[in-house]
Structure formats: C-alpha cells, structure tokens
Design a protein around this nucleic acid. Sequence first.
DNA 1: CGGAATGATCGGTGAATTGCGATGAACATG
DNA 2: CATGTTCATCGCAATTCACCGATCATTCCG
Lengths: 106, 106
Amino acid sequence: MHDDDIANIMRALGHPVRLNILRFLASQQQGECCCGDVTESLPLAQSTVSQHIKVLLDAGLIERKAHGTRNRYTIRHDRLEEVSSAFGGLLDGLSFRAPQKEAEPA
Amino acid sequence: MHDDDIANIMRALGHPVRLNILRFLASQQQGECCCGDVTESLPLAQSTVSQHIKVLLDAGLIERKAHGTRNRYTIRHDRLEEVSSAFGGLLDGLSFRAPQKEAEPA
DNA sequence: CGGAATGATCGGTGAATTGCGATGAACATG
DNA sequence: CATGTTCATCGCAATTCACCGATCATTCCG
C-alpha cells in the first residue's frame, strides 16, 4: 500500500460521522443495513449520510449490495485487515527509526 | 480517546506529505531535524511545510524543542503508542460486531 | 548594535469538504 | 401502468484545506 492509499483511507476515517457509520454498520452486521437505517441513527440529512457513505465506499472500507429497492451496506473486513497491517507498518517505520543493522548495540 | 480525537489524528495522518514528514523525522531522529531539513526533502515552500508541521503538532504527533535559532522536531512515540492502541480498539470494535455473549456458539 | 539565518505566522487564492433540499432513477406493488 | 419507497446525485452555500509569497520575531555572530 502506497502513501497515497494510506492517506486516503486515513482521511476517510478522519471524520467522526464516518466512524459512527462504520460502527453502526458493524453493530448491524447480520441484518439489514440500508442508508435509511444509518440516516435514522444520525442527526443528518439523508443526502449527507449518502455522501459520507460514498467516501467510505471510495476508500474501499465498505461494500454496497443492491437488494431490491434498498441498498445493503457491509463492512469490508478484508480491507480492514489490510488497513490494519498497513497502519502497523507505518507505525513500525516511525518507531525508533528502524535500524539498518540487524542487531542493536549489545 | 473519543471519536473526535481519533478523527482528528486520522485527519492529520490523512495527507501524504504529512506521512513523509513523519517518516523523515523518524529517519533523522538522533540528529538535527529542523524545518529547513524537512523543507529541503520536499518539493514545497517553507511556509507550506511549516503549516503541515503545525497540523502534526496540533495532533500531538510531534514535538517542538527550541534549539538556538532552529527548532528541533521529534516524533512523540508515547503518543504514537496511544494512537496505535486507539486504532486497534477501533478496528476491534468494527470487527465481526463484538458479540454480546461471552462465548461463541460452540 | 547591525546583519544574517531560521522559521512561524499572515493574507490571499483556488480547490475540496461538509452540510442541505430538490430531483430523478430504479424497483416493488397494487 | 400509476404510485410509493429508497437512495444516489445534483446544484448551492459555507467552511476548511493546501499552497504560496511576504513579513516579522527570534537568535546568533561579528
């Protein structure tokens, strides 16, 4: 994963409403979870929620499955794994300046 | 850590230049690392770099120490730990909708 | 004290984000 | 086919972001 991808995903995660939506989806996982449900759980207009959902979609964090007249959204756990490891890698890279040598000064 | 804090930090991490700056700081850790050094490593104006540094500062990800006429910047590893665990917690919360029951169906 | 260097901050510009209501496409149902 | 539901998308306004050059405060040095 490149910096741009990571940055993209971080930006997608960088809004409290979006975190809320993700959490809501996670909590509803097994059942229905359409845009309307999400909208009801938030003090925002439907169009705004749809917008936020689109950001999450574009970042690849959620998935849309058409289901009759509704759209069912689910979290992409596979992607979450990737994000997790990319983030871990990022933090690793930042920690104590990844030494070039294979052993630390004994 | 609240959603707003997490979102804030994610937003701070949500720009490739800022990731670059962090990495650069990490790589220079032991020595000097002032704004000028960072600026030289990027195709951006000094004021822009300073701006990005401010974002990282505000997010608490780096630290400024005055050092004569220069400012020395360092990564706040303590904070990075916090971020790491907060992020882990977030992902945990999103994974497989944290079951209410203490045991899974055996 | 008079430069020179460093770098934060200010003002400005254009692009992107966030929010909204309104519209329109897709689908189910009578 | 007409109607109702769901929701993505389209303007639109307000705010924030990213970037820049210019300026100003601080500090060092002669």
